[in-house]
């Protein structure tokens, strides 16, 4: 599983950090960071994060 985030679209709502904390987090400067190739077992979480994103910025492949 590969995760990309369109940082042009991302407005840092942080819904992904809530939905999938093992994949998405904020760094000390408040920027969004994510695991680009998480374990397949986290797919449900990743999809929940993509669905929860109000800007549809998260793409899972």
């Amino acid at each position: 599983m590969k995760i990309t985030v369109d940082m042009e679209a991302c407005l840092l709502h942080g819904q992904c950090v809530i939905a999938a904390p093992e994949i998405f987090s904020f760094d000390d400067d408040g920027g969004l960071v994510w695991v680009a190739a998480p374990d397949e077992g986290l797919r449900d979480d990743a999809e929940a994060a993509a669905d929860a994103c109000p800007e549809q910025a998260i793409v899972i492949a």
Binding site: H13, G14, V17, I18, P21, S25, F26, D27, G30
Partner: peptide
Amino acid sequence: APPAMIARHSARLT
């Protein structure tokens, strides 16, 4: 508020 601050407090609330 910075997203990280909100995420921290919302995690505590959850």
